[in-house]
Computed example of a mutant assay.
Amino acid sequence: MQQAHQQFVDAAPGVRLWTEQRGPADAPPLLLVMGAQAAGLGWPEPFVDALAVQHRVIRYDHRDTGRSTWSFDEQPYRITDLAQDIVRVLDGLGIERAHLVGLSLGGMLTQIVLADHPDRVLSATLMGTSAMSTTPYTRPDGTEVPVDELPGIAPEVLEMWARPVEDHGLEAELDRRVEHWRVLSGGQLPFDPAHYRDLERRIIEHTGRYDVSTAPARADHSGMLRTEALATTEVPTLVISAPAEPVFPPPHPQHLAQVIQGANLVEIPGMGHALPPEVQGPLAEAILAHTGKVG
């Protein structure tokens, strides 16, 4: 693991975000944006190290995750405020423009930033997410599918998300999180419970608590669509297609690549809504090939 530098930045009055930087300080910045309820340590160490060979890699904790301020109950915020936090992280670290890599909700937030602040984005990489656009999906045969008729979240995932999260102690919470990762992984690659248990144990140690915030589900989700801006953006964008994706299954990635002007699509074999060791190398390779084409 490469040496990392930690720093807090201000996102709002009374709200501070934990950040970590790794890689050469003079290398092109690359900011990793995690999904809902997920701390920055959800980006695996070997994956971050692989990107840090060519980039100054930054990962951070969203509000109400990790070591950032848990503020929603006292200061409710909108999901679009979490997109603005990306810009605040760049501002706080003195970064003018960065490559953005977003997973799940992080992919939605990244789309909002590339639409609203294209001058701050060198390139975007989106994975495990859906398009912030009302443009229909065009099938290979030319027929159109309205956005609301695209495939939904897998029933197994919805059933897991519907269960109340109860406190039965640390080990029981680790059991629950490992099962959650099993469901999200999609079943095409071997599942290693020990890998995810170790990951989540490190996240809990980093956070200092093992409860999970429900803030993303309770936050205002309005005002997230960016149909016209995505259709005309000049920001180089890579869309990762994950064939085992259970949250935003194909053709969500294909739709995303259609609605963002000039987007490229790369499939990572076996990938679901998780980052197991088997996908980290091919994924880093695809991202570095994408960012390497940008000035």
Rank of each mutant, 00 (worst) to 15 (best):
V239K: 00
P250E: 07
G281W: 13
H99E: 04
P276F: 00
D61T: 07
P277C: 04
Q258T: 07
T237F: 07
V113C: 08
V121H: 01
W181T: 11
F248M: 07
E205V: 13
D61Q: 09
S133E: 04
E245L: 06
P28L: 02
R201N: 07
Q6Y: 11
A244C: 04
A229Y: 02
T214L: 15
S68R: 03
M271H: 02
P277T: 12
P76G: 07
T69H: 07
Y196F: 15
L32R: 02
P251G: 04
T19N: 06
L82T: 03
L184C: 10
Q2S: 12
A4V: 13
Q6V: 15
H252G: 06
A4Y: 11
M160N: 14
L105S: 10
R201K: 13
F191R: 01
H5E: 13
H221K: 10
Q261C: 13
Q21R: 13
D64F: 02
L199N: 08
L100K: 03
E96I: 14
V212M: 13
K293H: 11
T80G: 09
R88F: 12
A286S: 09
S71K: 05
G106Q: 01
D141F: 07
Q254C: 05
W70H: 15
P190I: 13
G35Q: 06
D141S: 04
I95F: 07
Q84C: 12
A284R: 09
A229V: 08
F47S: 02
L109K: 01
L174Q: 04
P146Q: 06
G152H: 01
F47G: 01
T214Q: 13
T233R: 00
V266P: 11
D192W: 05
Q21T: 14
A284F: 11
P269L: 05
A172E: 14
A274Q: 12
R182D: 04
F191C: 06
H221R: 10
G295H: 15
L275P: 00
R88K: 14
H290F: 10
L230Q: 05
T143H: 08
V101D: 00
H195Q: 12
L90S: 03
L105H: 04
T125L: 11
D26Y: 02
E144K: 15
K293L: 13
D61A: 14
I204T: 08
A83F: 03
G102V: 11
Q258P: 02
P236M: 01
L184W: 03
G107T: 09
T207E: 05
V15Q: 02
R201E: 12
M108I: 15
G35F: 06
P246R: 03
